[in-house]
Simulated assay, not measured.
Amino acid sequence: MSTPARRRPTVKDVAARAGVAPMTVSYAFNHPARVAEATRNRVLEAAAQLGYRPDSTARALRSGRTRQLGVVVGEHLSYLFDDPQAAQFLAGISDVCVGEDTGLVLIPTRGDASDVDRVLAAAVDGYVLWTTVADDPVLAAVAGSGRPAAIQGGPAHPGVACIGPDDRAAAAAVAAATPLAEATPVVIGFPLDRRRTSGILRGRDLPADLTDPQAVPFPVTGARLAGYRDAVTQAGHDWDDVRVAVVERNQRARGEDAAAALFETLDGSGPVVVLAMSDELALGARLAVSRVPREVVLTGWDASHEAATAGVWSVAASLREQGRACARAALSGETTGQAVPWTVVGPGRG
Rank of each mutant, 00 (worst) to 15 (best):
L287C: 12
A259L: 00
S269T: 15
L266Y: 04
T299H: 12
A258E: 00
V296S: 09
V273D: 07
L298S: 09
R252W: 09
L281M: 13
V296I: 12
W301P: 01
R254E: 15
A261D: 15
L287M: 14
V292M: 13
A258C: 07
T299P: 11
R254D: 15
D257K: 07
D267H: 13
E295G: 04
R291P: 03
L287E: 14
D257I: 05
L275R: 09
A261K: 13
L287H: 12
G255R: 02
L266D: 11
V272I: 14
V272S: 09
D279E: 06
E295Y: 06
A253V: 13
V274N: 00
L275F: 10
G255H: 01
T299M: 12
R252F: 07
R254S: 14
R254I: 00
V289G: 06
A285I: 05
G300T: 03
P293S: 08
L266K: 10
A260I: 02
A260M: 10
D267C: 06
R252A: 14
L275T: 00
D279W: 02
V296W: 11
D257C: 01
A258V: 03
F263G: 00
L262I: 00
A261N: 14
E280G: 08
V297I: 12
E295I: 08
V289A: 10
M277N: 15
L266G: 07
A288H: 10
P271C: 08
E295R: 15
S278H: 01
L283H: 00
E295V: 13
V297M: 08
F263M: 04
R254M: 12
L262M: 06
D279I: 02
R294K: 10
L281Q: 05
A258G: 03
A258I: 02
L275P: 04
E280T: 15
A261W: 02
A260R: 15
S278Y: 00
A260G: 14
V274T: 05
V274Y: 03
V273C: 15
A258R: 02
P271T: 06
S290T: 13
W301L: 11
L287T: 10
G270N: 07
V296K: 11
R291K: 13
P293I: 11
V274C: 05
T265E: 13
V274E: 04
A260V: 04
R294L: 12
T299G: 10
P293Y: 11
E280W: 00
F263Y: 01
V273W: 07
L287D: 13
L298V: 03
L283M: 15
D279Y: 03
